[in-house]
């Protein structure tokens, strides 16, 4: 594996019975890159992500994430990555503080570290006033920001974000992307899926999956030039179902 690659995927395939969900995909993501992983519903994105984060075993092919093999070094992969899903995954009945403490414990951080990180995180998010309120009382956009911060607690090298901004209001959506940029700036690798095509433009490079295969992979600028259109939305529409 090239040492500058955060993710290195070679001929990765996943079959369920005789259905091929992910069909022989290969790509690399550089360290510090914001990589957009796009595709229509059912194109195989979630299956591919599950293999990369070590919770689904590939049928064939290789994937190396943060320097570890997803098949043989699954536990090391999990320790090196952060993951945040579209489905809100913090405990609604716990307060913001309790959630952070709980997940810090899960990640095996020391008590003193958890305490310090919890306070710093709450300060950064400007959530001091509501830190002792149940998470359920927060608006969705804020919840997602907390969830993102929690996924960073153990200082992972790569962060997987699966539709982090679905349904979030436009201002908070942009604040969220500011947090993404900030982490990328610090050298973290970001692997993100989204259905907002304007967000696809914020990525350094974008891949588009169609029926289990990667049909396109390049910078947003090059993709638009290649398909002779002026937005990523149009690139997506052209590729994903040949609408014209």
């Amino acid at each position: 594996m090239h040492k500058d690659h955060a993710i290195h995927v070679e001929n990765l395939t996943k079959m369920f019975g005789d259905f091929t969900a992910v069909n022989n995909i290969s790509f690399q993501v550089d360290k510090g890159e914001v990589f957009g992983f796009l595709g229509a519903n059912g194109a195989g994105k979630t299956t591919a992500i599950k293999m990369l984060i070590g919770i689904s075993r590939p049928t064939s092919g290789k994937a190396n994430v943060a320097g570890y093999d997803v098949k043989s070094e699954t536990e090391m992969v999990k320790k090196s990555i952060g993951y945040m899903s579209q489905k809100f995954s913090l405990y609604n009945d716990l307060t913001i503080k309790e959630n952070i403490t709980f997940f810090g414990g899960i990640y095996g951080l020391k008590k003193s570290v958890i305490k310090e990180k919890t306070q710093r995180l709450i300060d950064e998010l400007g959530l001091n006033d509501v830190a002792d309120k149940p998470v359920s009382s927060l608006p969705l956009g804020w919840k997602q920001k907390v969830a993102f911060s929690v996924s960073l607690l153990h200082d992972p090298k790569i962060i997987f974000l699966d539709e982090p901004t679905g349904g979030v209001d436009p201002i908070t959506r942009r604040q969220f992307w500011n947090m993404i940029y900030r982490e990328a700036h610090k050298g973290k690798t970001i692997f993100v899926t989204t259905h907002y095509m304007d967000e696809a433009e914020y990525c350094d490079r974008v891949s588009i999956m169609v029926e289990g295969k990667i049909e396109a992979l390049d910078t947003p600028k090059n993709l638009k030039a290649q398909y002779k259109v002026d937005s990523m939305n149009k690139v997506f529409l052209k590729l994903a179902r040949n609408i014209e």
Binding site: G166, F236, A240
Partner: peptide, 13 residues
Amino acid sequence: DEPTTGVDPVSRK
């Protein structure tokens, strides 16, 4: 009520 939330751009169209 939000028939297209979480739906990809092609299906939304």
